[in-house]
Design a protein around this nucleic acid. Sequence first.
DNA 1: ATAAACTTTCATTTTTTTTTGAAACTTTAA
DNA 2: TTAAAGTTTCAAAAAAAAATGAAAGTTTAT
Lengths: 172, 172
Amino acid sequence: MYICLMEFKEAKNKFVQTWGALGSQWGINKTMAQIHALLMVSHEPVSMEDIMEELQISRGNASMNLRALMDWGIVYKEYKAGERREFFTAEKDLDELAVKISRERSKREIKPALKVLKEVSSIQSDNTEAEKHFVDQTTKLYDFVLKADNVLDKITEYKDNWLAKLVVKIMK
Amino acid sequence: MYICLMEFKEAKNKFVQTWGALGSQWGINKTMAQIHALLMVSHEPVSMEDIMEELQISRGNASMNLRALMDWGIVYKEYKAGERREFFTAEKDLDELAVKISRERSKREIKPALKVLKEVSSIQSDNTEAEKHFVDQTTKLYDFVLKADNVLDKITEYKDNWLAKLVVKIMK
DNA sequence: ATAAACTTTCATTTTTTTTTGAAACTTTAA
DNA sequence: TTAAAGTTTCAAAAAAAAATGAAAGTTTAT
């Protein structure tokens, strides 16, 4: 019994650490990813106090990263009857999670990048080879990124089980 | 004529800066992304000296990031006849670029994450609700990530214009 | 074999990002 | 209205990541 409990805690910790490390590789900060991981595998809503305790982080850190996760729409606040404290839960439906992350990254990163690409590919120049190449390459990039972004948009419409459908289609 | 030249340089610079910033949001360091951007829009192979000059970076920095880009398989060394120096070019085919980046990220990040997910989802526990939930959630996550990774694998087989095909299929 | 031309390495410095924690703020129940 | 319970903010500190540059290492033409 004791052994088993340890094993669970160990596994949980390993998962949280790994998810955190993965987060930083994908441009999301470690703590934010760790909090999300923790909430993902928690059966019940978790209070900020507990998050601080489990991840050994400060109140400010916890607060700011929870806010960020809520801004991304992948963590929710919950209120318990007769409890003053706030509790948090993560979006646990993975399709929904993927959709929300895609949307947010598109809005924050892809759309602004497209704007710049359109802008820089519009300089007029039938001058040097170098300029022609620049315009050509940035135009292609614009088209490519636009298409990729549209794929993401379409995917978000497929909400329900888009991945499985996609796999079926792709695999012929 | 002079005005026009400035506009080109400005546009090029803006593109390089933007691509660099985007890189850091995606877990690639700024200089690496900037070098790649610079090479992408360069008509001719570029020497390390020129890269250092254009991006105002040190020799060591340039060298290390060029090595990293070559390890990713998205930048190539080129030799010019009768020239001692080495020149660099970027993969300019965007489909090919996407394929290589997908492969590399899969190998470096997704595969190791899968390993951990499999491991932690295999703890035995018909004990508490909390443990059941943990096993259930990490198992789902494993399946999801595995599927997503397979989609990427499939995509890499479609090399030629996979994105366009995908768009057509997805859009019905 | 040599030296010129060039590249890589890595300990140190710089920059950037993240975290802390105490003060300010908000909410709620009595 | 008040004070207890809780949350947020933000300037400062700490940690992490990236960049520097000089020394070491290669390569190649003669």
